[in-house]
Amino acid sequence: MASPAVDDYLKTIYQHTEWQDERMTPSQLATVLGLAPSSVTEMVQKLAAQGLVTHRPYGPVSLTDAGERRAAAVVRRHRLIETWLVQEFGYGWDEVHDEAEVLEHALSDRLLEGIDARLGRPRFDPHGDAIPDADGDVHREPFVLLRSAPTGHRGRVLRVSDRDPALLRALVDSGVDVGHAVEVLPEGAVRVDGRIAELPEGAADAVWLSA
């Protein structure tokens, strides 16, 4: 059954393990969604009863195959909409998340297919997140979180978290954007396209480079 609340839960769980391996706990889910832990526990139990997640008391939550397919479909809608807003309407990459949160529940499948075709079947959204295809498949290259990259590591910026719009704007000011070449320097600095840049606070945990 279609439900924006269910879709939001599944999408959040899906996104949690895209760029790291640890599974999501109910407390983390409550924090990200801004909900009371008791409400999250109740919903997780309902999702488990529907065969969308697996969960044991006090343990992490995992998507089942059915939950993964449904989550990938929601993520596809969200990221196609973000890409559409940037490319067709001139939105900044720091402005699209909240708009997409609303529109992902409103657009028809027919309109979404038209948007995908018009954009040329993009594989990544403006933040570098992979857009699942119509079958739910995604394509990513090996990556490393900036904080974990050793001094001297060189790679392209693959992805920047869209959780903090202010950080996105600060990274643009620093020249750190998806696709740019970065060399990791000591003491939190990087060389971006040949020039040295100081990173804003929080960047080390929000930027992923090619491995």
Rank of each mutant, 00 (worst) to 15 (best):
A134F: 02
L167H: 05
H139Y: 11
W84D: 01
L158K: 00
D65V: 11
A36C: 10
M43C: 01
V6T: 09
D125F: 08
L119A: 11
R169L: 13
F89W: 14
H139D: 13
I81H: 02
R76Y: 05
V6C: 02
A149L: 10
V138M: 09
S148K: 14
D98M: 04
I131Q: 05
P150Q: 12
S62C: 09
T83E: 14
W19L: 02
V138I: 14
R23L: 14
T17V: 04
W19S: 01
W84T: 04
K46N: 09
E99S: 05
R163I: 06
D98I: 01
E101H: 14
A71Q: 00
T83L: 08
S148G: 12
M43K: 15
H97K: 14
Q45M: 06
I196F: 01
D173S: 14
R163Q: 14
R56S: 14
G92V: 04
S148E: 15
V190T: 07
V96Q: 03
L103P: 05
R79E: 15
G92T: 08
P57Q: 08
P37W: 09
D193V: 13
A48T: 12
D125P: 04
T151F: 05
E101K: 13
Y14K: 10
V102M: 10
L111A: 15
S161L: 07
R159T: 08
A134E: 13
H78F: 14
W19G: 00
V75T: 06
H78L: 09
L146H: 00
P200E: 04
R121H: 15
I196H: 03
R123S: 15
P60A: 11
G136P: 00
R159M: 11
E101S: 07
V182Q: 01
P200Y: 02
D135V: 05
Q15L: 13
T83W: 01
P37T: 13
D94I: 02
G120E: 11
P132N: 12
L80H: 06
L145T: 02
H139V: 14
V102G: 03
R23H: 12
R23Y: 09
L85Y: 04
D94Q: 08
P150Y: 11
R77Q: 06
H153E: 11
R77S: 08
T17D: 01
A149H: 03
G194C: 07
E95A: 15
H97Q: 08
L171I: 04
D116Q: 15
S148R: 15
F89N: 12
L10V: 02
D109L: 09
L103N: 06
